[in-house]
Every structure is written in structure tokens, then in C-alpha cells.
Amino acid sequence: MNNRVLYILLPDYAAHEAVYLSQAIASDAFALKENPKYINQIVAPTLEPVKSIGGFRVLPDYSFETMPDDYAALALIGGFGWAAPVAEKVAPLVKSAIENGKIVGAICNAVSLFGTTWLS
């Protein structure tokens, strides 16, 4: 199912950034039909709940180890986790996505991943 949009959430993610993007994707003309054009799913370091800056907890669909290979786009959601060591584990996921022609986007602090040598 390559209509998945996968959102990478790290601890202390910025919940509002994921909300605006996911709502826009889910609110297209196909969203309320049986076969939506895109499906939003969450990827996190583990399958344990991920806490946002504001204290919301989200249960991921996938961990870094269990995320599928067939997806349309990868969205890195900002927050304070991008300054933590766990962010280094995202680099191979992004590198693989780019090599396989996937759409990759980053919001706010998540953009800092692209300014590092992790992707080289």
C-alpha cells in the first residue's frame, strides 16, 4: 500500500505540526470514501507511546524497525527530540527514502537533520 504518509515522531514532538499536515492530507476529496487517497500513520523509535511537548501521548503504528517499505512520503515532525541522540537513528530512514524516490519533508527543528553529516 504505497498511499501511506509516514510521520516520524520523536519524544517531545510538536503536536501542532503533525496536526496541520495530517488534516490537510486526510481532508482531500477521497478522505471520506472507503478507499482514501492517502493514509496517515505514525513511526517512532519504539512502539511505546510518544509524548509531545504539550503532554499528548500517541501510540505509533510502527517503530523504526517495523516501518513498511511501501509508502508514498515521509514527514519528519519538529520538536525538541531532534537535538537528542535518538535523532541519529532517523538518518538511515531518510537516506533510504531518498534513494528509493520517496517524498521526504521536514518541519521546524526536524530540518536540522538535513544540515548534519548523518546523511552522507
Rank of each mutant, 00 (worst) to 15 (best):
P11E: 07
V104N: 04
A73S: 12
K37C: 07
E88P: 00
Q23I: 11
L10I: 03
A72K: 14
I42T: 08
A110K: 10
F64I: 13
A84K: 15
N3A: 05
I8N: 03
T116C: 06
F64D: 08
Y38L: 09
A97H: 10
L74W: 06
P49Y: 03
D12F: 09
S63T: 08
I53L: 10
K95V: 13
V58E: 12
I25G: 02
Q23D: 12
K102Q: 05
L113R: 15
G115R: 15
E48H: 06
L76P: 03
I107E: 01
D28S: 00
D69N: 15
S120K: 14
F30D: 11
P85D: 13
I42N: 01
R4V: 12
I107F: 05
L74H: 09
I77P: 01
F114I: 10
V19W: 11
L113D: 00
I107A: 09
S52A: 12
L10V: 03
S96D: 11
D28I: 01
C108N: 10
I8K: 09
G78Y: 03
N3P: 08
R4G: 10
G79E: 02
K37M: 08
L93M: 13
V58L: 13
S22R: 11
Q23E: 11
D61N: 15
F80N: 14
A29C: 00
F80S: 15
P60L: 10
L93K: 15
E88S: 14
P11D: 08
A91P: 06
P36T: 04
L119D: 08
T117F: 11
V58Y: 10
Y38I: 02
E17P: 02
E99F: 11
P45Q: 09
A110Q: 06
A97S: 12
L59S: 12
D28A: 00
A87Y: 07
F80K: 15
A75S: 13
V5M: 04
P45G: 01
L113S: 10
A18P: 00
Q23H: 12
K102V: 03
I98C: 03
E34W: 04
Q23L: 06
I107R: 06
L9Y: 10
P85Q: 12
K51C: 07
D12I: 05
A73I: 12
E48M: 11
G78W: 03
K89R: 15
L93N: 03
Y71V: 09
I39A: 01
Y62K: 05
L21W: 09
I25M: 01
P11N: 06
D70G: 11
I77D: 01
P60Y: 04
I103L: 15
A72I: 08
G115H: 14
I77E: 07
F30I: 01
R57N: 13
K51M: 09
C108V: 09
L93D: 01
D28M: 00
F30V: 05
S22V: 02
I53P: 00
E88H: 12
L47H: 04
A83G: 14
A72M: 12
P68W: 02
A91T: 11
I107T: 11
A31V: 05
I77F: 13
T117G: 07
Y62V: 06
S112P: 02
G105E: 01
E88N: 13
I98Q: 07
I53A: 12
L10E: 00
K37Q: 07
Y13K: 05
V5E: 10
S27A: 04
I107N: 08
A26Q: 05
I107D: 02
G78M: 04
A31Q: 04
